[in-house]
Amino acid sequence: MTRVKIHKENFWVRNQKSEGYLLKKKIMEILVHVCRFVLLFGLCFLILQPLLNKISVSFMEEQDLLDPIVVSVPVHFTLSNYEVCNEIMHYWEAFKNSMIISLTVSILQVAVCTIVGYGFARFKFPLKKLWFAAVMLIVIIPPQLISTSLHLHFRFFDIFGLFQLIAGHSLNLKASVVPYYLMSATCMGLKNGLYIYMIRQFFRNIPNDMEEAAYVDGCGMFRTFFTIMLPEGMPIITSCFLFAFVWQWTDGFYSKMFIGGKRLVSISIAGAVDELPSYIAKFTGVRSSVSVAYSNCILATGTLMVIIPVVVLYLFAQRQFVESISSSGIKM
């Protein structure tokens, strides 16, 4: 009975009973809400604004860019920027190349990293600590440090002098994709140490019973891995694959280093602005300098075209991206 009565009491009556505490608490609550909203809205806007700005700029004609009245909604709506970008970057060719390379490389990397991560998580073997320290080392060592040497290594590639013997000279793998595939197959690609670490953390948290039950039932070590542990680890594997794909897509360092000969989106966007004057000169016949506003507009459009596939992927697989890190339970 009394309970019902309390609910029926007015807020102010209850406030009086608590000697003003309730009102104070309510006001504090609302204040916290407002502050939090303002702060988070501001920060989210900060992060999204450049993206939104790029979208609106990419539809503007040059005169809109220079018009101080036009801020975000284009007056002269045009798609020509996209056409120009497409021509300069050879977009579809680059897109196709990037897609093939990112897909194959990330599948290869994640497959190998899963095997290695599983090995670290579930087996005891001598010198395990040392090898794991090596994994940490490849996370920490900047690839730039060894890039000089690797560069020469692949420029004059040779296996124990075999090619020297047969062909008379060493192989030049600098402009080919082979070195990067070799590196991916041996966990030395972009951020592979991190993937090994995440996958190991995930597999370590799976209870031992399952594995033991499989062994008791006569399942071998490799079969246990493929039929029992692998399906279990699918969430972290897909997450790592997504990361690998996205980071490979936008990567400039390894691409420039090893895949320089191929046209990739990440490389062509970096050179888009430099190519703009000569592209325009092709039509007008006059080599003139391009206005800063216009070259930036082209850059914004190009950037958008590069990141659109990634954004679409993120929209669909947002959960896998964000929760992968929490699910691996990173601890030190």
């Binding site: 290695v116 087996f123 073997f125 090898w131 090596a134 590196m183 041996t186």
Partner: peptide
Amino acid sequence: KAIAGYLFISPFILGFLVFM
């Protein structure tokens, strides 16, 4: 198990020695 463990991490060892 130790041998299997080494088999599992062998790609890494190879890469680490050759490319690192």
